[in-house]
Design a protein around this nucleic acid. Structure first.
Lengths: 197, 197
DNA sequence: ATAACATACTAACGTGTGTTAGCGATAAAA
DNA sequence: TTTTATCGCTAACACACGTTAGTATGTTAT
């Protein structure tokens, strides 16, 4: 009888969620079927329901675990006694590293949250809105300090976050530069685009 | 008997494709059903097939019409006798305006092309790969000229293109800055991040 | 060894999907 | 006006989907 392997002291549910992330990224949430997922896990579709409540629950878990990581980070960064530019750089580096090392989850959370259903959907959208506002607030302080050039902060946030989601293409490309190079290049372009000179 | 309205000298097929773009953006290709589309058009689902061959055909048309516009533009820009930075700025402004004024199509082409099926899929991927190479080549010339700081060109392209796709958030936001402001802000940040100083 | 539990299986359900066939209605051409 | 082509309708198809019920197998604790 087939059994879900649980190496690295992961629960069976965690194994399923992880495989789901990969599948949702590859095919999209709607196009990825529970039968696909079952096959990836090495089990029959119905068996998954011994561990999870529904397909959407998988999406909840992915979206909110990612969102929480970012919220915790911005909590941390806001408390530091750094310049705005330093804070922004720290946030950007965190985003970049999340996108490099937790690619599947972050990508899914970014692109597939539309398929959440209320109340999770509104909740998630709220968290995102708030996160962006806090990010924008940091930028606005930098603008007042003349650290940062006079631009629309919301637009700047939008550029930063979406630019980083482009790491998707880096993952898919054949001949990649190293992760470190990628990080430095991105920081150079993004921070370089903000600062006053 | 219901009939598809064809104002502005559009064919009935064009009306369907346009509505499909909106629907695919809102729900995603997979989640948008032909019955949804039929309702949006004001007709029964089966009637759509008097005008189109299949659901995927709608996606083909959207993806390739967008891709062709960008390819034509880069053809044009490459021939001009401008500096690299000027060429890049021209391309970026084109991207931004496409994203502002042909939002639905461009967004769908960007996010839903995965659901194309071969041979369209490989074809589309190829066109994208080539487009990015040509964009990167312009940047590389700029780097050699010292117009542009020494960065990985492929990474720069990836940042630029994805940053622009963030205009999606601008469309969805409630209190928007004007389209002109948006364009200038984006150019300022993106070009500012590239140039040597 | 036995009881209790966790996990996987088979079978099937209701629903929604893209699409086709065939027939009436309408508009365009003769 | 008659003919012809265009367009929309109803009905139905085969299929894939998420999920449930009930049962068998394997694992852990007593």
């Amino acid at each position: 009888m087939a059994r879900i392997k649980t190496d690295n002291n992961l629960t069976r549910k965690e194994v399923i969620v992880t495989k789901a992330a990969t599948l949702f990224r590859e095919k999209g949430f709607k196009a990825a079927s529970m039968r696909d997922l079952a096959e990836a896990v090495g089990v029959e579709a119905a068996s998954l329901y011994n561990h999870i409540k529904s397909k959407t629950e998988l999406l909840h878990e992915l979206c909110f675990s990612v969102a929480n990581r970012f919220l915790h980070k911005i909590d941390e960064v806001e408390l530091e006694k750094n310049s705005s530019v330093e804070k922004i750089e720290k946030l950007l580096r965190f985003h970049i590293n999340e996108m490099i090392h937790h690619y599947e989850e972050v990508y899914v959370s970014d692109r597939e949250w539309k398929h959440l259903s209320d109340p999770y959907l509104s909740n998630f959208q709220n968290q995102r809105r708030i996160y962006r506002k806090r990010f924008a607030a940091i930028i606005e302080i930098g603008i007042k300090n003349k650290e940062i050039k006079s631009i629309d902060a919301a637009t700047a946030v939008l550029i930063m976050l979406h630019a980083i989601s482009g790491i998707e293409s880096w993952h898919r490309s054949i001949k990649k530069i190293s992760a470190e190079e990628l990080e430095e290049n991105m920081i150079s372009i993004l921070v370089g685009g903000l600062v006053n000179r």
